[in-house]
């Protein structure tokens, strides 16, 4: 399999072979990530193709390293755009369930002034993630960033599905308390 640097060289050389190599190496993961969010393989295929176009337009001048998290983020953002565009009643993916789990952790803001913007919230979330063990951090990311199901997460970390469920319940409880202590509202 082609190394990331070679893929980036192909992008810089504006060779469409770069897209093919990218898809060959990371396409399966990208489609799975997208499908977890949009809930449809067909929609996921479109989102991944849009994401490749986004990467094509961004590289160069960007030369991301490592490449995979960069591509995964583009896929995720494109997929989320498609997800939010769907009528609320038709949002029927694993991501919907995952988001519903998370919603219970966040208190509504009392006033507009107390709302927090996404980047600041991301910084605080990162600080919270740093308080977790590596294993718990991975479990959290796989569920709420990658929208993996309990079975996939259990297989990855070597726990039972029930154990993963209990861990996530605990982590959400910790996050709720962490955010409350810092008076973070959405």
């Amino acid at each position: 399999m082609v190394a990331d640097e070679e893929i980036l060289d192909l992008f810089f050389a504006r060779s469409e072979q770069g897209i093919r190599e990218l898809d060959d190496k990371y396409g399966r993961l990208c489609r799975r990530l997208s499908c977890s969010i949009v809930g449809s393989e067909q929609d996921a295929e479109e989102c991944v193709n849009d994401a490749y176009l986004g990467a094509w337009n961004a590289i160069p001048p960007s030369r991301p390293s490592p490449l995979l998290p960069y591509i995964a983020k583009i896929v995720r953002n494109v997929s989320l755009n498609a997800y939010w565009k769907k009528a609320a009643a038709k949002r029927n993916s694993r991501y919907t369930v995952a988001l519903e789990e998370l919603e219970t952790c966040f208190a509504d803001s009392k006033t507009v002034e107390t709302e927090i913007e996404a980047r600041e919230f991301a910084r605080i979330l990162g600080a919270f993630l740093d308080t977790l063990s590596l294993e718990n951090r991975v479990i959290f990311l796989r569920r709420y960033w990658f929208a993996d199901g309990y079975r996939e997460i259990a297989a990855l970390v070597g726990l039972s599905e029930k154990a993963v469920s209990v861990r996530l319940t605990r982590i959400r409880g910790k996050m709720r308390r962490y955010l409350q202590e810092r008076e973070v509202f959405l």
Partner: peptide, 20 residues
Amino acid sequence: NAKRVSDALSELDPQYVQEA
């Protein structure tokens, strides 16, 4: 709330994604 959380997750430092 759900969209704000989702947006914030998108802005997470890539190191966490790489780690996972």
